[in-house]
């Protein structure tokens, strides 16, 4: 398992990085934490001609307030999000999801932007960003643009990013005062990619759930917003009947593929179980 030979560059500025991308086009691959890319190089699943290491770009790092919301740099590592008091306060869903991401050693190196740009359908951050209504900040020599997380993920391992663009940050809107969130995931071993996972967000007012966002991971090519299930619970108290209705509606939202160990049927069943548990938790 040796990677095929590749070039390596470590630009000192975004401008330099854009120039490298312009020169090498699809042949260049951005290296952030390397927790998915390096194994795929070694297994020869990827063979870029140039690795552009973003490690020297300090402007891509860090968690900062943005109004009452948050801006998280793309090179911010999972472990920093996991430990951030600001994240726990303003985007608790991320803090809840972080411990489910692989293992400590991987969280110490892997980055938010790397995970989003790779867009693994079973990864935690894409679903969380969709649930939170985050904006993905994308830069290129042409300038900066923002794409809603909901529109960012296009297909299996495919995103809105063009070959000359770099994901630089994620902006998360301020939470409503009554906002509640819960992240649930089923993996056969702690730290594995999820069989099924659910990033759930809602505002609870007067015992009712409003602005409910249920986003599933591991059950489709991209994070799946369960619109029918969300509609079924919207404005309702999460009692047994409402939860059952939402669970029932899930079959309209999800059409999972089975994987090696779990059939499509089982995945849908497990998604229903997680929905029940998440709604009960949001209402609690």
């Amino acid at each position: 398992m040796k990677a095929s030979s590749f070039g390596y560059a470590r630009p000192a500025s975004l401008a330099e990085a854009f120039a490298l991308l312009a020169r090498h086009g699809e042949g260049a691959k951005l290296l952030a934490g390397g927790q998915s890319l390096i194994p795929s190089l070694n297994m020869r699943l990827a063979a870029p001609e140039l690795l552009v290491d973003l490690g020297a770009l300090g402007e891509l790092e860090g968690i900062a307030p943005l109004g009452q919301g948050l801006r998280i740099g793309a090179r911010t590592r999972h472990c920093e999000i996991e430990r951030s008091a600001l994240v726990a306060e303003r985007a608790p869903l991320l803090a809840q999801a972080a411990p489910h991401i692989a293992h400590v050693a991987i969280r110490n190196r892997g980055t938010l932007g790397g995970s989003l740009a790779l867009a693994d359908p079973a990864a935690e951050w894409p679903a969380c960003c969709v649930a939170l209504g985050a904006q993905i900040v994308i830069a290129s020599a042409r300038g900066e643009r923002r794409v809603a997380a909901e529109q960012f993920f296009k297909a299996l391992y495919a995103t809105e990013l063009a070959a000359d663009e770099i994901l630089v940050a994620v902006e998360i809107p301020p939470p409503a005062p009554q906002a509640r969130s819960v992240f649930l995931e089923l993996a056969r071993r702690r730290g594995d990619y999820a069989m099924v996972g659910l990033a759930a967000q809602a505002n609870r007012t007067d015992g009712q759930l409003r602005d409910v966002r249920l986003v599933f991971l591991g059950v489709g090519a991209i994070p799946v917003l369960a619109r029918h299930a969300m509609a079924a619970i919207e404005g309702k108290a999460a009692d047994a009947a409402a939860i059952a209705a939402a669970q029932h509606e899930l079959s309209k939202d999800l059409s999972p593929n089975g994987d090696l160990y779990t059939s499509a049927e089982a995945k849908l069943h497990l998604a229903r179980v997680l929905t029940g548990r998440a709604l009960a938790a949001l209402a609690r």
Binding site: M43, R188, R189, R190, G191, D192, Y193, L260, Y261
Partner: peptide, 29 residues
């Protein structure tokens, strides 16, 4: 008992030939 199995397709292709797919117990399990 819980995790390990070399899964083959009916055509004889090993479907889980990596440590990401062939699951062995880890200390937390």
């Amino acid at each position: 008992a819980m995790l390990e199995e070399c899964v083959y397709s009916p055509e004889g292709q090993l479907l889980n030939g990596s440590l990401a797919d062939y699951l062995v117990p880890m200390s937390g399990d």
